[in-house]
């Protein structure tokens, strides 16, 4: 990602850990020495239906705190994809979970990755957010891989650390550079 600021929108169903993922990404960017603002849907909207977290990363001061048009959009659920895929520009990297079928399409550079399936195979569906972070970061180089690891491990409870460490790696493998769109 060459642009500055980088605008990231993480979306999915309530309970998929998108807000945690947003906070982790923001913490990782902070570890890299960047400025960061993180916002989210709040309240009932975040528990029922779709949930959204936004992160803006910049080397300089961030004026407007919310995402206008995302440079990176992650959708982990069909409902979120329907809601947010229209709000992108042609260069937006759109990363969809493979559970979202090919009939769902739109602008942007669309990549489909089996993130929830990979999380299940790694040890738990609840790690889908961490798999997604690993994959997104491999595709974009948003933050340094070390900072991402440190941020994830700092945020998750002790008993889930091994699972999440494995989930980051699984996500990174899922998005090896060969699979990134040109």
């Amino acid at each position: 990602m060459n642009s500055d600021p980088v605008q990231v929108r993480l979306s999915g169903a309530g309970g998929q850990g998108l807000i945690t993922a947003g906070v982790i990404l923001a913490e990782a960017a902070l570890l890299d020495g960047k400025n960061v603002v993180q916002t989210q849907t709040y309240g009932p909207e975040a528990r029922l239906g779709s949930s959204k977290a936004e992160v803006i990363i910049s080397a300089t001061t961030i004026a407007y705190p919310q995402v206008t048009v995302p440079d990176i959009l992650l959708c982990l659920s069909l409902e979120a994809a329907k809601k947010y895929m229209s709000l992108v520009h042609h260069d937006t990297l759109v990363v969809l979970d493979s559970t979202i079928g090919p009939e769902v399409t739109g602008r942007g550079r669309i990549v489909r990755l089996p993130m929830t399936a990979t999380a299940v195979a790694t040890g738990g569906k609840m790690a889908a957010n961490t798999v997604a972070l690993g994959a997104l970061n491999r595709l974009t180089g948003l933050v340094s891989p070390e900072s991402l690891r440190r941020a994830v491990l700092a945020r998750v409870p002790e008993r889930f650390r091994a699972l999440n460490a494995a989930a980051i790696e699984a996500g990174e493998r899922l998005a090896s550079p060969a699979e990134a769109p040109a």
Partner: peptide, 10 residues
Amino acid sequence: DEVLAHMREN
């Protein structure tokens, strides 16, 4: 306000 209340920033 609600935005600042819930916004995270370094």
